[in-house]
């Protein structure tokens, strides 16, 4: 038990150091633009189909499921705005982030883990390339930038899914549906939801890189790194989400 607790603290300490190093290296010159854009592309390319499908289904299903309840209160006209608010504030960010945790954090964990195990990271270091700057900084920045963009995309796809769901029983043009949604949308619905997605992205990249970079030797540790990355990243998403809700509640 004490060993277990000690491990948790040790890991937390290591991780904090890893994070501090990120900010230190970020400020040093020679930013690897090419690797950064390659990573951004990879993040988008790997997750876009999944996010499209899940986003669409979420919007559709949510609309269909909510209709009977709203109908009971005679508030069917609230359906578009209610569904899109839940999507924008909560569902799209969390689902998108979870998909990225499953797809991106594990991918980064496995990739860096195998590079570590096969001495590719050492090889980089002896070629006078700072592997932290080249591999870690670019990946963390890529996820921090891309996850919010993907969330915004998921918002749109989800709302469109809601539109399709609405029209199973109702009859509304796409234009009217969207203007109805936008009319009820406030700054406070959007702003905190977008801010938290940057943190989701940051932690997905950070945890993936940390687990990969610290893979011990041996091929088995590559699988472990990938697996731990998914678990830790998913967990961190829920924790950040909870903190974000509390903070918004406190300040606004």
């Amino acid at each position: 038990m004490t060993v277990y607790i000690k491990n948790i603290f040790e890991e937390a300490g290591d991780m904090t150091q890893f994070t501090l190093r990120f900010f230190k290296e970020l400020l040093k010159p020679v930013f690897q633009w090419r690797e950064f854009s390659r990573q951004c592309f990879a993040v988008g390319y790997k997750t876009l189909p999944l996010i499209t499908i899940t986003g669409f289904i979420m919007g559709l299903v949510l609309t269909i499921q909510s209709r009977p309840t709203l109908l009971k209160f005679g508030a069917e006209s609230w359906l578009p705005s209610m569904v899109s608010l839940s999507l924008i504030r909560e569902i799209a960010p969390v689902i998108t982030a979870l998909i990225c945790a499953g797809k991106i954090a594990s991918g980064i964990g496995a990739e860096l883990g195998s590079m570590k195990v096969t001495e590719q990271i050492d090889a980089m270091e002896v070629s006078a390339v700072n592997p932290y700057k080249y591999l870690v900084v670019t990946r963390i920045l890529a996820t921090t930038l891309m996850v919010p963009l993907l969330v915004i995309y998921a918002d749109f796809v989800g709302i469109y899914g809601g539109y399709i769901g609405y029209n199973i029983h109702g009859n509304m043009t796409l234009f009217r549906y969207f203007s109805d949604v936008l009319e009820h949308l406030e700054f406070l619905d959007l702003f905190p939801a977008i801010i938290k997605t940057f943190f989701f992205g940051f932690f997905i990249g950070l945890i993936g890189c940390y687990k990969g970079f610290n893979a011990s030797n041996g091929t088995a540790s590559v699988g472990i790194a990938a697996n731990e990355a998914v678990v830790a990243a998913s967990l961190s998403i829920f924790i950040i989400d909870m903190l974000a809700v509390q903070l918004t509640d406190l300040f606004f």
Binding site: Q120, A123, V126, S127, V129
Partner: peptide, 28 residues
């Protein structure tokens, strides 16, 4: 790093970057 620029290191197991082609490995 300035010193490492003058050193070539051949790893026992090669340590080729496996996401890059041979050309890119050398180019890197």
């Amino acid at each position: 790093n300035n010193m490492r620029v003058n050193i070539g290191f051949m790893f026992q197991n090669g340590a080729l970057y496996d996401s890059m082609s041979v050309r890119q490995n050398l180019k890197f």
